[in-house]
């Protein structure tokens, strides 16, 4: 007998109790978590919006503040998912051995990895909602299309959760995550049009940017917040979904290799 670590994922509803467990932990610190979700985007948007916005003319027919809003939505959801699946997931898997405890019940590793993706996606959804609330309150978007930001936040969250889990599955310790943040997340923030338009970059970097998930997220978010239907929206959605599916599968294979052999 040889375990097939490349087998397709087997989903079951047994991931739900794990999601509820994580929610119970989150509930205990909900105050500070929600404050962070709200305060971070406010600080970014007011600081950068006024600081840079004052010096900049309009960008692509909108104020810098409105331009920035779409970037911050995607940036916040990306960060929220990434921190969750790197530090918190690693703690559950390695430090607290929560996964070991769960694996002794009728729950399988596939259920656990799925629960991690869904949980991180849920936290991203909340983070996206908080930013959207700030955007509405600051009057930076009046479009009903901005409601589409809600499912988009979930999709972006699932995408970066799946990608981050690959790193967690390979990590020997917490220090390893610095590589991911320094080599993947930070360049992504600068290349994908969070703070300035991608068109400002040299052609080579624009090509890199065009394959990165955050670019596609922002290409959806920015028109939606400015009352326009995004161009090529099916393509952007497909790319993000592709990252979710491939990222999840690769992460699952790596977790199986790490934990069930």
């Amino acid at each position: 007998m040889k375990p097939n670590i490349f087998a397709l994922p087997q989903f079951s509803r047994r991931f739900i109790p794990i999601w509820r467990r994580n929610f119970m932990v989150w509930e205990k610190m909900a105050g500070s978590a929600i404050l962070g979700n709200l305060a971070d985007p406010v600080i970014y948007m007011l600081g950068m919006g006024y600081g840079l916005g004052g010096m900049l003319p309009q960008i692509g027919g909108m104020s810098y503040m409105a331009f920035l809003a779409a970037g911050i939505v995607c940036y916040s959801t990306m960060n929220s998912a990434s921190f969750e699946v790197l530090y918190s997931t690693f703690s559950r898997m390695y430090e607290q051995r929560t996964w070991d405890a769960i694996l002794n019940t009728p729950i399988t590793l596939d259920d656990i990895v799925f629960s991690e993706v869904v949980w991180a996606g849920s936290k991203s959804l909340l983070s996206g909602l908080a930013v959207l609330l700030v955007i509405w309150l600051l009057g930076m978007s009046h479009s009903p299309l901005s409601l589409w930001i809600i499912p988009l936040a979930l999709l972006v969250g699932l995408c970066f959760a799946a990608l981050g889990l690959i790193v967690t599955a390979l990590a020997p310790g917490y220090d390893f995550f610095m590589y991911y943040f320094t080599l993947v997340i930070t360049p992504m923030v600068l290349l994908c049009g969070v703070f300035f338009p991608v068109e400002q970059l040299p052609p080579l970097l624009q090509n890199v940017s065009s394959v990165l998930p955050l670019t596609h997220a922002i290409n959806l978010a920015r028109p939606l917040l400015n009352d326009a239907i995004p161009a090529h929206f099916l393509l952007h959605i497909a790319v993000l979904l592709g990252y979710v599916l491939v990222g999840f599968y690769v992460a699952l294979v790596l977790f199986r290799r790490r934990l069930s052999q």
Binding site: R21, M24, V25, K28, Q96, R97, D100, A101, N104
Partner: peptide, 11 residues
């Protein structure tokens, strides 16, 4: 009952 304690410390 596992060898290494894995109770949930948050609970």
């Amino acid at each position: 009952v596992p060898q290494i304690d894995n109770l949930d410390p948050d609970f």
